[in-house]
Amino acid sequence: MNGGRAALCVEQKELVAEGVVRLRLVDPRGVRLPDWAPGAHIDLNLSNGLTRQYSLCGNRWDAMSYEIAVLLEPNSRGGSEFIHRQLQVGDLVQMGGPRNNFRLVPADSYLFVAGGIGITPLLPMIEHAAKMEAPWTLLYSGRQLSSMAFIDRLQSYGDRVVIRSRDTQGRFDLGAAVSNLRQGAKVYCCGPTSMIDALEQFCRSLPTGALRRERFTAKVQTSPARSTAYEVELARSGKVLTVEPGESVLNAILKAGAPLLASCREGLCGTCETTVLSGVPDHRDSILSDTERERNLSFYPCVSRAASDRLVIDL
């Protein structure tokens, strides 16, 4: 446990629609994975040097595995292509998070709008809305039916789910869908930018926070994950520690005898929060928002590492 979570293991890989693979990821030690809620994503540090974010689309009542689904992008910068063509069952892949910028919040009813692979974060949301017995509708469109993942999983929901192939049936009338919403409804959308932009226009008159969206043109992380050792300087004592890639910074600090309190050791609880004085962390926690990550003021040594050669921390 002191080594931090090094990697996840690809346990299953299966084609679930044209150009879409579903991966089942487990901890190679056979232990629980960190908790998550619908809307969460993980960062995968692929061994071709890229970091990509993927929504968790599996079942959180199974604590032993994560599921993601990856679309092979025609203009892939290497992430989806690597996963489709090179990543194999049994391979290890580095992980950060899970993090959640797209939380399911309480509502009297939900309208879910998915475009293509944007169905992934919405799948667990639908299951949650059903569990909470809130009325909901899913509008799910894709270019053609054969490339739309998880249609089979959605069958049991009957007419709450409306599936449409854009090539043969055209687009959804999102304006009408929004104007039919009752008071207290919330709208969740994940899909191409054009779809989100259109929906934003229609939702202008809804109350604050009624529209929640996730764009899947995720930002490229500025600092690539490193696979080599780095130095951590404890500013108050002047000690410089060398941290090997397989070791957690927390462990290195404790070995050096500095009193640093931790609790969950999974980047969830925030107990080991440490101030960064200089250097660039490679954040792997579930706590900081994107803005907070960019500020690089604090980090969680139980899971996070260094992206730069040296990190100076206030300890």
Binding site: A37, P38, R60, R103, L104, V105, P106, H128, K131, M132
Partner: peptide, 9 residues
Amino acid sequence: PPIHDAPRH
């Protein structure tokens, strides 16, 4: 969960 999620967060 699921009703624990929002107040907890």
